[in-house]
Design a protein around this nucleic acid. Sequence first.
DNA 1: TTGTAGGCGTTATCAT
DNA 2: ATGATAACGCCTACAA
Lengths: 329, 329
Amino acid sequence: MSRPTVAGVARAAGVSVASVSRVLNGLPATEEMVERVQRAVEELGYVPDARARSLKVGRTFQLTLAVADVGNPVYVTMMRAVEEVVAAAGYRLVVTTTGPDVVDEVALVRGMARGYADGLVISPLRVDEDLIKSIRECEVPVVVAGNVPAKTGVDTVRANSPKGILLAVEHLTARGRRQIAFVNGPADTVPGTARAKGFADAMKEFNLRSAGEIEAADFTFAAGRDAGKTLFKKSGPNAVICANDLLAVGVMHELAAYGLEVPNDVAVVGMDDSELAEQSFPPLTSVNLGSAERGRRAAELLLARIEDSTRTPRRIVVQPSLSVRRSTP
Amino acid sequence: MSRPTVAGVARAAGVSVASVSRVLNGLPATEEMVERVQRAVEELGYVPDARARSLKVGRTFQLTLAVADVGNPVYVTMMRAVEEVVAAAGYRLVVTTTGPDVVDEVALVRGMARGYADGLVISPLRVDEDLIKSIRECEVPVVVAGNVPAKTGVDTVRANSPKGILLAVEHLTARGRRQIAFVNGPADTVPGTARAKGFADAMKEFNLRSAGEIEAADFTFAAGRDAGKTLFKKSGPNAVICANDLLAVGVMHELAAYGLEVPNDVAVVGMDDSELAEQSFPPLTSVNLGSAERGRRAAELLLARIEDSTRTPRRIVVQPSLSVRRSTP
DNA sequence: TTGTAGGCGTTATCAT
DNA sequence: ATGATAACGCCTACAA
C-alpha cells in the first residue's frame, strides 16, 4: 500500500490527473467532477506532496527563522512576532537553531539556499566575511535581524543598543546611582561590541567612571552567575547594567548569594525586556530593544522581498525604550 | 542570472549531468572529472535543490518537532535533547509552533504528511479523535511525546506525572507541610487531567485533605498569577504544587504581592524542572519529569522507525525525580 | 470543461 | 568510467 498520487486519485475517480489537480486547486470544474475527485481523495487519504508541488510552482510557502539559542527568551518574543506576520500571509514558519558559532550560521544559510524555504530571517551573533558572502549568494531572500555591513546588500532590522544603554544610565543616575558596572556578553559578538561601546559612550555622556566591566562567556544565565562572582569580588558598584536579561538574572542570583539586596544595595538593569524580565524576582527593569517590533518588521521585509526581489534593501533601526520594574529604585 | 542546475554545471564543465551528480555524491570518478566538476560548481556557485533531490531519493533529512508554546521552558529542554540526537544522525531539526488548539495540531500533522520532513515529534496538549486519526494516517512516522491511546499505534514517550506529584507531596509532608494546594493547568488537556488525578491520588495516599485546587486558564506565567490571586483569597495553604514551572513562578509572584514568604510561609513546588526553575528566585523545587530524556528517547524512536517502519510501536514511560531547591523548606 | 503531454532538478538504470 | 534517459509527483500550457 504505497502512497497515493494524483495519478492514483485520477484512476480511482475515473478522470484525468489534470482534473484532479484543478479540483484540488479550486479551479473551475463541474459539480460532478468536484464530487468524484473529492470522494476519491477522501477514500485514498490522498495528501499532495509538498516537494513535488513546490518544485513545480517554485515556492514552498515555508519561511525559516534561525536563532542562536532557543533558551534565550528574547528569541521567544521575536518568534511570536515573526510567526504572527508570516502566518497572516499564508506561510508556515519553522525555527532552527544555529548555536553561537559563525560556521553553523554559514552552513545554514548555504543549506537553506535551495528548496527548504522561500526565505530566511537570521539573527547572527557573530558575523564574518564568510557569512556575508553566503548571505549575498543565498538563492532565497534573507533578512538579518541584527547588524551586518551595508555592503551585504540585504534588508536589516536592528536595535539601537547604545541608545538603550543610555536610557539605562540615565534612569540609574536619576535614581541616584552613579557607581555603575556593566556585564557584557562576549566582545567578539555583534551585540557584544555594540553594547561595550554603548556603555562607554553613555558613561562619558554622564561624566561617570565605570565601576567595573565584565565580559561574560556567553549570553546565558550560567555565564551571568559567573560574571556576578568576579564582579563583586573586585568592586562595589551600586548598580549593574547587563547586556541581556539572562545575564541580569544570573547576576541577581549571585547578588543574593552575597547577601546583597536588589534594588536597595544594588540596582540591576537587563536588556531585551523579554518575558523573563517580568518573571524574575524582583521583576527586572529592562531596556526594551524592540524585539517584537524587530521581528514584525523583519517578517514584513522578507515578505515584501519575496514579492519583489528588485526593491532596494532597507536598513531599519528600531528605537529602544525602558521598562521600569522593581529591580531599580 | 537564473540559478544554476546540474545541467548548467554539466555544460560549464563539458561533461554529462550524470557525471556531475556522481561527483557531487562522491561516487567513483576520475581525478580529472572531479576536478572539472568542482571547478564549475565553485564558479557558478551551484547549490543542489533539496526538493528535487528529496523528490527523487524519497528523503528530506529533515525532522520536525512541534510544540504548543515556544515560551514554555520545558520545550527548550526537550528541543535541546531532540536536536542533539537528531543532528548526530545527520538530520536537520526544525521546530514549529502549534498553539494550544487541537485543530492546529491536526492541520500540522496533515500538512506535514507529505514532503516537508521525514518524521515528526509532537507533544500535544489536547487530543481528540481527529488528531488520533491524522496521526494514524500520517505518511511519515510520528512519535508522540505525551499520552495518546494505544490504539493510535505510534511510538510514545510519556512522563509519569502522578508519580511525580507523589514525590512532591511526600517531600512536602516530610518537611512538615500538610495544607497542600494544587494549581493545575486546563483540565481538558492531557497533562491537566493526568495531574489532577495524580494530585487526588497522592493526597489520598498520604491521608491528606486538599487545601484548595485551582484550574489555571493556561500553562503560562500570567495564568499562574491569576490562579495565585484566587488561591489565597479563599484558603491559607502552607504549600502549593503547580502543574508546571511557569505556573509556579506566577504563583510565587502573587505570594510576594500578598507579603507571604517562600518557603517560610508557603512552600512552592513546580513541575518540569526546566531552566526557569533554576533561574527563578528563590530557585524552585521542581518535579523533574524527564523532559530531556523524553526528548532523547522520542528522537531515538523516530530515527529507529524511519529505518524500519515495521517495528511494533513502543510505549516508553520515563520516571520522575525531584529536584529540591530553595522554594521548599 | 476536460484530457494530453512536457518539464521543474535530481538521481539511478542502462548502455557504451 | 561516462553518457543518455527515465522516472520522482506535481502543475499548466495547449489541444480537444
